[in-house]
């Protein structure tokens, strides 16, 4: 199972933008088990790149193939199946249901394709220090807490690729490290790849490939 990225460039980018990039306009193949770190300054298109791969934005030229099929030909149902079984994401803007509790947010994701039993929600929440927030509405949680909920949510399903878009932007180093350990542990158990897009390099992520956007 692999992600095949060919000459992808956002439509709103100028042609010369791809000259200094390892990603834009290049041919890349990401395989299961790889830990890929993408470092990019603000405005270089990190979120766009992650969203292109995840299929929620289509304003790019070039092609992205997932398991041999061009994702521009995916139907909404095929995208849904892929996001349920093969690809998980940690959004930079978290995208939680603010009026629902932390538990409900996690259960909504977990029930879709249960990889873990419900007990695992409590266990992970405890590991990331938000177990006392499980029954609080998300809108009452801090950004840091919401970010941890978003991380746990992404780990509730089976996946071959985990896409992370600045997942620790609201977390301190200690909490980021704890979260990273959990993510790596969960990804290894699935033999999954991680595509981690961030502003800067972090020491606690031992990548197998480093790319500059």
């Amino acid at each position: 199972m692999q992600l095949d990225i060919r000459n992808v460039l956002p439509l709103y980018f100028e042609e010369n933008k791809n000259q200094n990039s390892d990603v834009w306009g290049k041919k890349l193949v990401f395989n299961k088990g790889e830990f890929i770190k993408i470092i990019a300054p603000s405005g270089s298109g990190k979120t766009s790149f992650i969203h292109f791969i995840y299929g929620i934005r289509k304003d790019f030229s070039g092609d992205i193939f997932f398991t041999g099929k061009n994702i521009s030909n995916y139907t909404p149902e095929e995208f849904a199946a892929c996001r349920k079984d093969n690809m998980s994401i940690i959004f930079q803007d978290m995208r939680l249901f603010s009026k629902q509790t932390v538990w409900e947010n996690l259960e909504i994701k977990r029930q879709l394709n249960p990889y873990h039993p419900t007990e695992k929600i409590t266990e992970m929440a405890k590991r990331l220090g938000i177990e006392d927030k499980l029954h609080s509405k998300c809108e009452t949680c801090s950004y840091g807490e919401q970010q941890r909920v978003s991380i746990i949510r992404s780990l509730m399903q089976p996946f071959d690729f985990l896409l992370m878009d600045e997942p620790f932007s609201h977390l301190d180093d200690a909490n980021s490290q704890k979260a990273m350990e959990l993510i790596i542990e969960e990804s290894r158990s699935r033999e999954a790849a991680i595509i981690f897009a961030n502003l800067k390099r972090v020491d606690y992520f031992s990548f197998t490939r480093l790319l500059h956007l």
Binding site: K84, F91, F97
Partner: peptide, 14 residues
């Protein structure tokens, strides 16, 4: 917004 999030996390539109 909620429906978009549901679709984004893998819920089938059907």
């Amino acid at each position: 917004e909620n429906l978009q999030t549901l679709l984004a996390i893998g819920y089938s539109p059907k």
